[in-house]
Every structure is written in structure tokens, then in C-alpha cells.
């Protein structure tokens, strides 16, 4: 394997690792907190919101937005580390 290919493989591995972490959070806030564990979380009340209901109609959306921007930052850093930025 050439030096160039090794670099590309290493970059891809780190990229996939980020994806797995970020998508686990994506799954946890929507399918987890908003659907599967909704009833349990509803026992907790914050202000006028039951927590599970809040995740389903508000919280998960905020987390989605944050996730993409975190991804943008992580990838920009990663691009720089491997010299793929332009």
C-alpha cells in the first residue's frame, strides 16, 4: 500500500468513527428519548413540559442542529490534519 493510500485509509477510518458516535446520539435523542423511553421520561417534568414529550417535539430537533455543526467542525479539523483542506 502506498503512502498516499495509507493516509486515505486512516482518514476514512477516523471519519467513520465520528459518524458512528454522532449517529448514536442522533438515534438516542429521537428513537430513544422521544419514542422508546418516552413514557419513562415523562415521569420527569421540567417547567410545563414532560421530558419525553419535550424530546419528541423540541429537544431532538435542537440536538440534530447541534450534531451537524459539531460534525462540520470535526471534519474541518480532520481535513486539516490530513492535508485535505482547501
Amino acid at each position: 500500500m502506498s503512502e498516499k493510500q495509507k493516509k486515505a485509509t486512516a482518514y476514512w477510518k477516523e471519519n467513520v468513527r465520528y459518524l458512528i458516535i454522532l449517529l448514536s446520539i442522533w438515534f438516542a435523542v429521537s428513537y430513544g428519548a422521544g419514542i422508546l423511553f418516552k413514557e419513562t421520561l415523562d415521569q420527569i417534568q421540567i417547567g410545563g413540559f414532560k421530558l419525553g414529550f419535550w424530546f419528541a417535539q423540541q429537544g431532538s430537533i435542537y440536538v440534530f442542529v447541534i450534531l451537524i455543526f459539531v460534525y462540520v467542525r470535526l471534519m474541518n479539523k480532520l481535513d486539516k490534519k490530513y492535508g485535505y483542506n482547501e
Binding site: 454522532l22 449517529l23 442522533w26 429521537s30 422521544g34 414529550f53 419528541a56 417535539q57 431532538s60 430537533i61 440534530f64 450534531l67 451537524i68
Partner: peptide, 12 residues
């Protein structure tokens, strides 16, 4: 909620 999560989570 299916519409709220479904139509935004797709962007992730």
C-alpha cells in the same frame, strides 16, 4: 411528533 422528528432528523 413523527413529522417533527422525521422531517428534521433526515438532514443529519
Amino acid at each position: 411528533s413523527v413529522y417533527l422528528m422525521g422531517w428534521t432528523g433526515g438532514y443529519v
